[in-house]
């Protein structure tokens, strides 16, 4: 119950803040570190809007307490941008394919897609579905998201992986 100091690496930077144990990583990122790109959708692990990378793997940030992230490495949607803040390759692909509408599920989609392409640079459609199956989107019906991931895969390969 007493707040604890939590130090972790977020998007390549060491960040530190205090949180009581019951604060989720999601709330910690949003409200302690002001990284508001990660979104709250259900807080019970179904929708995937809060997906981040935790030690390189896509996870639900609503299902991890911030205290559990102490000493770990987290990547959020902000971390997919280039160093100068411009959109990174997967973010460009989502724009080119209009793989989004309201943008609310998008950060989670981008993280799941990025995680997929890091391990599987040339994914099949089934692999894309498997990777995105835990991210609900209510706007798009998924087709343009699949297009975006296919497009990103091409650009990842073009860039040498």
């Amino acid at each position: 119950m007493k707040p604890r100091k939590i130090t972790l690496e977020v998007n390549g930077r060491v960040r530190s803040a205090t949180a009581e144990p019951r604060l989720t990583l999601l709330d910690f990122l949003r409200y302690a570190l002001n990284l508001t790109g990660t979104h709250m959708g259900c807080e019970h692990g179904v929708c995937g809007a809060c997906t981040v990378m935790f030690d390189g793997l896509a996870v639900r940030s609503c299902l991890i307490y911030a205290v559990q992230a102490d000493g770990h490495d987290v990547t959020t949607v902000e971390g997919l941008c280039n160093g100068d803040g411009t959109p990174g390759p997967i973010q460009e692909a989502f724009q080119d394919a209009h793989g989004l509408q309201c943008g609310y599920c998008t950060p989670g989609m981008l993280i799941s897609a990025q995680a997929l392409l890091q391990s599987t640079p040339d994914p099949s459609d089934d692999e894309i579905r498997e990777a995105l199956g835990g991210n609900l989107c209510r706007c798009t019906g998924y087709a343009q998201i699949i297009d975006a991931v296919r497009l990103a895969a091409v650009s990842f390969q073009g860039a040498g992986g």
Partner: peptide
């Protein structure tokens, strides 16, 4: 195992 949740929950 592929039926257990999703990739994001299996990672944890």
């Amino acid at each position: 195992l592929p039926y257990v949740g999703h990739a994001q929950t299996r990672n944890r």
